[in-house]
Design a protein around this nucleic acid. Structure first.
Ligand code: ATP
Length: 681
DNA sequence: GCCGCAGGATTTTTT
DNA sequence: ATCCTGCGGC
């Protein structure tokens, strides 16, 4: 064993070292939160490279880009930068996208496929429902999207779904599924699940191609293995190939993606899936204080379906878990901002990046954005695509997509009247009819005489103009590079930016939206700067589809680094922070009411376990007495999860901003008094 | 065909 | 509270 290798192993405990030292054959690291599973993966990659495995032969799979990025940063500290870059580290989806760009031809698709984002998917699904002959009151697009996604996760074709259908609705979904696939295919689009599904199909149907990948990726590592679904398992099994050099790490207690088809059996049955595998358990937690660990353990041990684990930590007792009751949701947000401010004031060693606010659902972020902004605390909103979900941004992106993929009818319909071109419902109907006969994409049809001959002067010139402009820019964009300049010119040429200023009557709003477009152009520019060679527009759009806006290459990296993090608990998996705030600790919010209806309380509990174990030093649980929901004030009651935390390791604090709240009895009296005043008058 | 307004739904969680 | 849809007047 080389000295460097010994050095590596010295930074690990004996069990971790054991997992790292094994290079060949299947290994499962099955261990609780903060025990260093991810550390094992990165050290293991470093150790492999030291032992002569070529970095380009190693693939590390994660579920989120953040996790991949984090892993890359850790790996950079262990091996030469040049070597680190050659290791594949990314999500399953980005891995599969790479594979398909190269080899999808074998399945009869074009290599220039585009990836359907959420809004494309919703649009195609709506269309599929109509074309399958149903009404949207009969069967909603959301239901179809989630059902079909799960079906794909089980590798079921539309025919399989129809055959297995046990209810009226499932029969319908089967038919919608069939149409849905057809529409995507016609538009040369793949949805997220297709990326995985088609990769598996490609490898199953073309052993020669699989062999090539088996040769390229000889060593495979998978993080968060408990969150894999059947499809991902198939992918892993195929990629691991005959030599089965696979290392999976995971924790059944952190399985939080059951709702999208993740199957804990994959991790529980690892030994039978990969015979003669080695299993390694880790018990020392290096992250949390014992109070946090104990709280987390009390919470998770209430779940019936789990493998019990003994976790211990040398991080000391630590502070008690803080439980705060706030009067309202606004006060909750104010409290968090104040607590962050006070903590930093009291301890100059802390910085903003030591703090995270972890909530159950995305919409909760809004109040914290406001309160942090008011308190002048820099924050970073992670895991949302909020920037890319703005209307004007989506419109601009639709134009870009159309320049890459003229078959993209969804994007075409989106921007047909942005800006207005005199083409309305009647003309769209005639487009649809023509498409039925000619099977030609809309963007093509608007240049054809069959369509143009029935149009009024204004609509006709609008259509001709649009056709010519799209055609011109499609050619421009078929060359790589200069993306931001070309985008700007393209959008100007379309009168798109001018259109925004006209569309929004409110001057300020119009200018804000225009500035958003400039920001998009900037994002494209910084993407280009980060690319090793002049990129194609297609590549930028792929990044847009597969990553979220926190992955945007950042100009002011430093400022971003020193910010409070706002994100969902799901997005926080695998990360750690010294101070963690968990707001909305209320019945119906966390656990979420929908989860309770669906009977997935154990998963909610695991989610809370994940949230707690993100903290190194300190956890604040905040619940409110009342909260605005759907524009109405509702009375909230504390989450049952709070009661699972023993009193000797928790303390209740009153929000400083709160005056003494009334209890229910006093409240009733107060109302009665008010009413009687009204009556006397 | 465009634009403005009223009424309705909307909040899990992600690639 | 806010975003989207559908209807009706211009
Ligand atoms: N042997 C070790 N020596 C020092 N620090 C360690 C050791 N093992 C892990 N750590 C530290 O403990 C923390 C948690 O490690 P890591 O993120 O790898 O755990 P994990 O098991 O992946 O956690 P989770 O499942 O909760 O995401 C990290 O800060 C890591 O650097």
């Amino acid at each position: 064993m080389s000295d460097i290798s010994k050095d590596l192993l010295k930074q690990l405990n004996p069990e971790q070292a054991k997992a790292v030292a094994i290079i060949d054959g299947p290994v499962l690291v099955f261990a609780g939160a903060g025990t260093g599973k991810t550390r094992v993966i990165t050290f293991r990659i470093a150790n492999m490279i030291l032992h002569g495995i070529k970095p380009q032969n190693i693939a590390g799979m994660t579920f989120t880009n953040k996790a991949a990025q984090e892993m890359r940063e850790r790996l950079d500290k262990l091996v030469e930068r040049g070597d680190s870059r050659k290791v594949f580290l990314g999500t399953f989806h980005s891995f599969c996208c790479r594979v398909l760009r190269k080899d999808i031809k074998a399945l009869g698709f074009g290599t220039n496929f585009t990836i359907a984002d959420d809004s494309d998917q919703a649009g195609v699904m709506k269309q599929a429902i109509v074309e399958a002959g149903f009404d949207k009151t009969e069967i909603g697009p959301e239901v179809c999207i989630s059902f079909i996604s799960r079906a794909k996760g089980k590798m079921m074709t539309p025919q399989d779904v129809s055959r297995a259908a046990e209810s009226e609705i499932e029969i319908k979904v089967g038919q919608v599924y069939e149409r849905y696939m057809q529409i995507l295919y016609n538009q040369n689009m793949l949805d997220f699940d297709d990326l995985l599904l088609l990769t598996v199909r490609l490898w199953q149907d073309h052993p020669d191609i699989l062999e090539r990948y088996n040769e390229q990726y000889t060593h495979l590592l998978v993080d968060e293995y408990q969150d894999t679904n059947f499809l991902q398992f198939q992918l892993i099994k195929l990629l691991a190939g005959k030599n089965r050099n696979i290392c999976a790490v995971g924790d059944d207690d952190q399985s939080i993606y059951g709702w999208r088809g993740a199957d804990m059996k994959n991790i529980l049955d690892f030994a039978s899936h990969f015979p003669k595998s080695k299993e390694i358990k880790l018990e020392q937690n290096y992250r949390c204080t014992n109070n946090i660990l104990k709280a987390a353990n009390c919470v998770i041990s209430r779940n019936a379906e789990r493998c019990a684990k003994e976790l211990w930590s040398k991080c000391g007792q630590g502070e008690k878990i803080k439980i705060i009751r706030a009067e309202s949701d606004e006060e909750e947000a104010r409290y968090v901002a104040e607590a962050i401010f006070d903590t930093i004031a009291g301890d100059p060693g802390t910085q903003y990046s030591d703090f995270a606010v972890l909530y159950r659902s995305n919409h909760q972020s809004r109040l914290f954005e406001n309160s942090l902004r008011d308190a002048q605390i820099p924050y970073r909103l992670v895991g949302s695509k909020s920037f890319y979900e703005r209307r004007e941004i989506r419109d601009a992106i639709a134009y870009l997509k159309l320049a890459v993929n003229p078959k993209d009818d969804q994007s075409f319909l989106r921007i047909l009247s942005v800006p207005p071109r005199g083409i309305g419902d009647k003309a769209i109907d005639s487009l649809k009819k023509l498409q039925h006969i000619t099977f030609t994409p809309y963007a093509e049809l608007i240049g054809h005489d069959e369509f143009l001959k029935d149009l009024t002067g204004k609509a006709g010139s609008g259509a001709r103009n649009m056709y010519a402009t799209l055609k011109k820019w499609r050619e421009q964009f078929s060359e790589p590079g200069n993306l931001s300049d070309k985008t700007m010119a393209y959008l100007k040429d379309l009168n798109f930016i001018e259109g925004i200023l006209k569309l929004y009557k409110d001057r300020e709003e119009a200018e804000r939206r225009r500035d958003n477009i400039y920001e998009l152009v900037n994002a494209i520019a910084s993407y280009e700067r980060g690319a090793s060679s002049p990129p194609m527009l297609l590549e930028f759009l792929e990044t847009y589809a597969l990553y979220d806006d926190s992955d945007k290459v950042d100009e002011d990296e430093e400022k971003k680094k020193n910010s409070v993090t706002l994100m969902t608990v799901h997005a926080a998996k695998g990360l750690e922070f010294s101070y963690v705030f968990i707001p909305g600790m209320e019945h119906n919010i966390f656990p979420h009411e929908r989860a309770m209806q669906e009977g997935t309380c154990e998963e909610e509990r695991r989610l809370f376990y994940v949230a707690l174990t993100r903290a190194r030093k300190n956890v604040h649980l905040v619940h409110t007495r009342s909260r605005m929901r759907y524009g109405k004030t509702t009375i909230q009651r504390p989450s049952e999860f709070i009661h699972d935390i023993p009193e000797d390791i928790s303390e209740s604090l009153q929000s400083a901003a709160a005056f003494k709240p009334l209890d229910e009895e006093e409240l009733k009296d107060a109302w009665a008094a008010l009413y009687s005043i009204g009556e006397k008058k």
